[in-house]
Design a protein around this nucleic acid. Sequence first.
DNA 1: TGCCTAGAGTTGTCGCGTCAACTTCTGGCG
DNA 2: CGCCAGAAGTTGACGCGACAACTCTAGGCA
Lengths: 166, 166
Amino acid sequence: MAKPRTLEPEQWELWNSWMQAQRLLARELDRDLQRDYGISKAEFSVLVTLHRAAEGRLRVSELAESLAWDKSRVAHQLTRMENRELVDRTEDRSGRRVGVGLTAKGRSAVENAILGHADNIRRYFFEALTPDQAAAIHVWSRRVVDRIEARCGERADQLDANQPIM
Amino acid sequence: MAKPRTLEPEQWELWNSWMQAQRLLARELDRDLQRDYGISKAEFSVLVTLHRAAEGRLRVSELAESLAWDKSRVAHQLTRMENRELVDRTEDRSGRRVGVGLTAKGRSAVENAILGHADNIRRYFFEALTPDQAAAIHVWSRRVVDRIEARCGERADQLDANQPIM
DNA sequence: TGCCTAGAGTTGTCGCGTCAACTTCTGGCG
DNA sequence: CGCCAGAAGTTGACGCGACAACTCTAGGCA
């Protein structure tokens, strides 16, 4: 018996409902954050990371590392957020950008949003979950991440798992 | 004891690894599809849906229904894919667009991609999964979808779960 | 007949995310 | 010192996804 060349129907069923769950969940959390606090989940991720940085000010590369985001993604996100005055970038005397911090507006946004967002995660994610389901998902998630990062390793990529938040 | 206002550390841990798994998985599948078959997962979804439609030709609204996508999303996707000559739109005599079908190029792309994609799903998703984890995830996914769709129902939205594929 | 509403489909705009290319700085080594 | 590799950061281009606004048409009904 060679490996089956396609998935079994019940595997497709699982795959589809998982994809669906994942998509709806992300969309719902994003919408709620937008509606209730006026920020997106990408913005929220950046704001939280800055907020819990001890010094309150990070370099782009530290943000990228901490979020496990590509540095160019961080740069684009920061220019959008700088336009919205949620963060500010500081420059050294030569004009080189060298640090990112919260503005007053950014700080209050994240401090307002964080509890509501946690509530939403609990409501949509955890309240649909029994403890053994939680355990199963946790084990499996880590294994998926490990396997993919192992494959990335073959390509000499590096992605430290750190704190993705969203 | 009121409800806790934030998540427990182990809940954050689970949440983070789940989000991470979900993101890496989607990205990896997308990259593989792109590299091996030259199509994105959005394109793949559309092609598969058209491919398994009995008549081989669908209306935009049927595609949207079947994919559980917004109709405007479908329209945008189709114009990109029409430019790449993966699909073609047929018009009635008044020039109104009235049907979408596969081109020869689209058909061969999807027929090549489908087995490889199923393999990738198996490799990344199912091989990291024990049967009881699979069951747990399946139950939970459906519950998440139900809960969110119930909430959407309150807003008089409709989203028939049908066949999301990716 | 003429109106009028509901649905189908498109378009524009914007934020997110990836990739590749580019500049500028920095540190090491001859 | 001068050079050069590599890291830090930005930019541009492009596809994806959501939302709102628009056109057009078919069907119903006076």
